[in-house]
Simulated scan of single mutants.
Amino acid sequence: MPRVTIPVTRLSDAGSADPTETNGDPVNQHALPNSGRTVLRVRNAGAAALDLTLVTPVTVGGRAVEDTVVSIPAGDTRTFASLSPALYGTSVPIDVASADLKLIAFEP
């Protein structure tokens, strides 16, 4: 199955309400449309730390670039920005460990 796309909310000077969170999908995983200015916010609603992986689909000199793996503590939120399209692509593959990770994305 294809990855579940995380919707991106456009911000404006009129103000924007927070979108509904996308539940993590550890089976199908996710894709984030990325312009390099896209902001990803991830909340861990679980009772234990959970991993989020930003997959780097590029290679340098024939070698795969290591993925970015972040452990998000229980009850905490992490915000990711400046996701370089040269490193992560224009559709960032995101792997989650659990449905307890809640994802939203913004674009200025």
Results as ranks from 00 to 15, higher is better:
M1W: 05
P2V: 13
P2M: 13
P2R: 15
R3F: 12
R3G: 14
R3C: 10
R3H: 06
R3Y: 12
V4H: 05
I6A: 04
I6G: 03
I6D: 12
I6P: 09
I6R: 02
I6H: 04
P7A: 06
P7G: 08
V8P: 08
V8I: 12
T9C: 01
R10D: 11
R10L: 11
R10A: 14
L11D: 10
L11C: 09
L11G: 05
S12Y: 07
S12Q: 06
G15V: 07
S16D: 14
S16V: 14
D18I: 04
D18F: 07
P19S: 14
E21C: 04
E21A: 11
T22Q: 07
T22V: 15
G24E: 05
D25R: 04
D25L: 03
D25K: 10
P26Y: 02
P26D: 04
P26L: 05
V27L: 03
V27M: 01
V27R: 04
V27Y: 02
V27K: 05
N28Y: 05
A31G: 15
L32Y: 11
P33W: 14
P33C: 13
P33Y: 07
N34R: 02
S35K: 07
S35L: 13
G36W: 11
G36T: 12
R37F: 14
R37A: 12
T38C: 06
V39M: 15
V39C: 07
V39H: 01
R41M: 14
V42N: 03
R43E: 00
A45D: 08
G46H: 01
A48F: 01
A49D: 15
L50F: 01
D51P: 03
T53D: 09
T53S: 13
T53F: 00
T53G: 01
L54G: 08
T56F: 04
T56V: 15
P57M: 12
P57C: 08
P57S: 13
V58F: 12
V60H: 09
V60Q: 13
G61S: 09
G62A: 11
G62M: 14
G62F: 14
G62D: 12
R63T: 10
A64I: 00
V65W: 10
V65K: 10
V65Y: 09
E66L: 08
D67Y: 00
T68S: 01
V70E: 14
I72Q: 00
P73C: 02
G75W: 00
G75S: 08
G75T: 03
D76T: 05
T77C: 07
R78S: 07
F80R: 02
A81D: 14
S82L: 15
S82G: 01
L83G: 02
P85D: 14
A86H: 10
L87C: 11
L87V: 15
Y88G: 06
Y88V: 10
T90L: 08
T90Q: 09
V92Y: 14
V92T: 09
P93T: 13
D95M: 00
D95Q: 09
D95N: 10
V96A: 06
V96P: 03
A97T: 02
A97S: 14
S98Y: 00
A99E: 10
A99V: 04
D100M: 04
L101Y: 02
L101D: 05
K102T: 04
K102F: 00
K102M: 03
K102Q: 12
L103I: 03
L103T: 02
L103H: 00
I104Y: 03
I104P: 00
A105Y: 03
P108D: 15
P108H: 11
